[in-house]
Design a protein around this nucleic acid. Sequence first.
RNA 1: GCGGAAGUGGUGAAAUGGCAAACACACUAGCCUUAGGAGCUAGCGCCCAAAAAGCUUGCGGGUUCAAGUCCCGCCUUCCGCACCA
Length: 847
Amino acid sequence: MPEETEQRYDPAAIEPKWQQRWAADPALYAAEPASCGKPKYYVLEMLPYPSGQLHMGHVRNYSIGDALARHMWMRGYNVMHPMGWDAFGLPAENAALKNHVPPRQWTLANIAGMKRQFGRLGMGFDWATELTTCLPDYYRWNQWFFLRMFEKGLAYRKKSKVNWCPECATVLANEQVVDGCCWRHETTIVEQRDLVQWFLRITAYAQELLDGLDKLEGWPEKVRTMQRNWIGRSQGTEVDFFLEEQGPGSRVQGSGKTRIRVFTTRVDTIFGATSVQLAPQHALVAAFTAADAALKAQVDELIDQQKKAREAGDLGAIEKHGVPTGRFAINPYNGARVPIWVANYILADYGTGAIMSVPGHDERDFEFASKYGLPIVEVIRPVHKIEAAQPLPFLSEEGVLVNSGDYNGLTCTEAQMKLQEAATRGAFGEPKITFRLKDWGVSRQRYWGTPIPMVYCESHCQGDGPLPVPGEQLPVLLPEQIEITQQGGSPLARVPEFVNTTCPKCGGPARRETDTMDTFVDSSWYFYRYTDAKNGNAPFDSATAQYWFPIDQYIGGVEHAILHLIYSRFWTRVMRDLGLIVNDEPARRLFTQGMVIKDGHKMSKSKGNVVSPDDMVARYGADAARTYSLFAAPPDRDLDWQEDGVAGVSRFLARVWRLTTRYAPLARAGRGQQAEAPAGLSLKLLRKLHQTIAKITLDFEGRWHFNTCIAAIMELVNEIQAADAQLAAGDVPPPVVLELLRSLVLLLAPFAPHLVAELWEELGEESSVLRAPWPASDPELAKENELEVPVQINGKLVTVVRVAADADAMTLEAAALDDEKVQSRIAEKTVVRVIVVPRKLVNLVVK
RNA sequence: GCGGAAGUGGUGAAAUGGCAAACACACUAGCCUUAGGAGCUAGCGCCCAAAAAGCUUGCGGGUUCAAGUCCCGCCUUCCGCACCA
C-alpha cells in the first residue's frame, strides 16, 4: 500500500550516517578482557597487503568474517575481530622506482586509503589493535624472534643455490617459484645462483608439522593434503654401495674405503639393482671428472640439461640422459658389481643425490636401462603368480622376492625389515626418513623488509662469524632516506650509515647484515600481536595470548594453503618451545573462500574484468555489495560476479526497508502489549519466522551456507509482503508485527549492518543491535500442523496427500490409499509392500 | 603419474537417501505511477499448438521400496604436487 509520502531506500544517506556513529564508539567492536566472563571467540581474516585498492576478493573475505563476528557478538561471545596490514614487500619498492615516492610514504598512504574503504564497507574491526608490519614497533619483534632462533640454532647461514629472479633482482624462496617462473612475474624464468643466505630450520619440525595435520579437523582436507605433499615424508633405507678399488684383484665386498650412499624406498628390490646413478652435482662425480676431461664435458652437459629443465619448471619432462663413469660399485648385500652412471634426472638436493637403479621394478629405471642397454633383473613376483614370469617393470609392493639369495620367498614388507636389519648390523646402511620440505630461506636482497639483526666484526672477532645485535639495541631501524635503484644486490649495502657499526663483542669496526627478511616472517605470527598490540616490552603477553588462542576461525584464500599457513604453524611451535604460548597450532578452524570470478576468469587488470568495490558501494551501497557477495554462492565456492545480481539484492534490501518502515509505527505500538495465542495469518507468519530463525542459526554453527540463509530471509520477506494488505488493514496484532520485524532485522544483522542499524532505530531500539541477543527459534511455533506428503507408486511420484503433521504411519498409509489417483492406479494390481516414512513419503510397491 | 574439488534450467544456484530446480537474475505478460536502475501480480527445465502423459542432475553400470545424493568404472574441467628415488 504505497503511501504518497513514502520515501525510498537510500543507502547513500543511511550508510555514512552509521559509519560516523560507529567510528565515534570505539567500544562497539572492541574485545573485552578475559575477566568479562563471556566465552571468547577469535575470528580472523587474513590481513591484506596494502596495494592501494581493495578488490572484490577482499570484500568477500571480510564480508564472511564480519558476518561471523557480528553473529557471535549477538550470541553473547567476547569477540576479537582485528585488522592490520602486511605492509612490507616488493610492490612498495617498485612504486618507488616508478613514481619516486619513498616506500614508507607509498605504503602508509595506501593503508589510509584502504582503511577508508573498509570504513565505507562498514566492517566491524577493532581498530585499536591495528598493526602495520612495516613499522618498527612491529618489526622489532621479528628481529627479537630471529635472535631467539639464532640462539637456539634455528637460524643459521649457509651457502646455497638460490632462485634468482632477474626482474625482482632478488632471491626467491622455493615457494615463490611457480613453474620455474617468478610468482610475481609469471613469465620471468628464475635462474640459479650461489649466495650465502639465512635459513630458518623448519625441517626440525617436519615430522611434528606433518603429525599435527591429522588433528586439524577444522581445516579443509584439501589444505591438509597440500601441506602433507609439501612436507613430503618418504620412508625408506639408506644403503652404502662400495666404490670398487681401481686395479685388478680388488673386487672384495666391504673392502671399499669410499662409500656411495643411496636412498631407496624399495630396499626389497636391491638384488635387482643393475647400476648406481649419481646426480651430476654429486661430490663423487667431481672427483671422477677431475682426472677425466672427456667425462667432465659430458657431465657438464647433464648439469646444463638439468639446470634448463629446472628453470623451465618441467623437471618432470626432462629427457633422460646418462653417461657411464667407467667405475663400478659393489652391492653390499650380494657383492654384485654394477656400473656407476651419472644421470640428468637425479637431483643432488633430494635424498643422498644417488640412487640404485632397479629397472625390473621401477618405471624410470626401466626406461633408462632400456635406452642404454643395462640389464633388467626380476626380483619381485606377485604372490599368486609365483611360478610365472611377469612383464617388467612390476611395480607393486604386493609380492614376494625371487633371485634374492637368502631373502627369496619373503614378502616385500618382510624383506624390507630384514634387509634394514642386515644393513644396520653390517654398518652399511640404516632405515631413513626423508622429507621434501627444505629449510626456509629468509634472506632477501631488498630494502623494504625487516633488517636482519646480525653484524660481522671486521676486527678482533672476525673469525667468530655473524654476531647477534644485543637485544637492548633493537630495533635495528630500517633507514628512511634511501634511493631505490634497480641494481642487483642489497640496497642497504649502499647506505654506509646503516652498514657501518661497531662490533657488539669487541667494539671494533663491524658491518651490519644488509639482507632483509622474507615478508612471510611478518605474517607468521601477527595474529598473536593483536592480543596485546601495544606491548613495548615483549611481542605479546603470554597470559593474554593463552586466553585468546587458538584462533577459533581463520578465514582466507586457498592461495595461502602452503606458504603462509605452514610458516605460521612452524612459528607457533617455535614460540611454544620458547615458552611464550601453550598451543601447538595457531588456528582451530580454517576456512578457505573461493575466488571471485567474472566472465569466466579471475578478476585481473590484464583480463579487464575488474569490478571496483568503490563503484559497487557508490551504485548500490555497501550492504548490497556485501550481501550479494554472500548470496551469489556458498562461501567456499568460486563466485561469479554479476552486476544484475547486486541490483537484485539491492531491491531486496529496499523491500525490507519499505516493509519495516511502513509497519514500524504499528510495531512500536505493540511494545509491552500482551500477545494472544497467535492464530490464522499471525500464526502463519510467526511459523515462517521461527523456521527461518532455526535454519540460519544452524547454518552459522558450521555449514556457513550464507547464500541459503539470505534466500531464507527473502522467503520470509516475501511472505510478509504477501500479507501487506492484511497488515495495512490491522489484521495482525501489534505484538506480532513487532516480533516479526524485530526478528527480521536481527536475522539480517550479520549481512547488512547499516540497513539493520537504521531499521533497529526505526523500531524504537536504543542500544546497538550487536548487543541484542540473537533470536531464539520456538520449536512449537516453527512446527507445521499440516503437511503435504508425496505418494509414490513403485518409486514414481503420483500425487501428494495433505495430512496432519503428526500423522502416524497407519494414518498416512490410509490417506494415501484413499486418494483417487492412487485408487485408479492400483486397481487390478496387488500392493506387495508399503513403505511409509512419517512426514516424508508413502511408497506403494505394486505388481 | 599422485592427491583434492567440481559437473543440475537461458544465468548464479537449491535439495539430513524421500515431491529435482527453493531463492535470485534474465526474459514474457498484465497492472500501477510522483517515469524510478522504481513498485505490485502472474508465467518461466525439456518435449508438445496446448493439456494430459512422458522425459530430465556429464556418461555407463550397481545397491535400494526410493539415488543429484551411496558404491564401481569412465569422460570433462579446475586446483595443488611431481622423474622426490
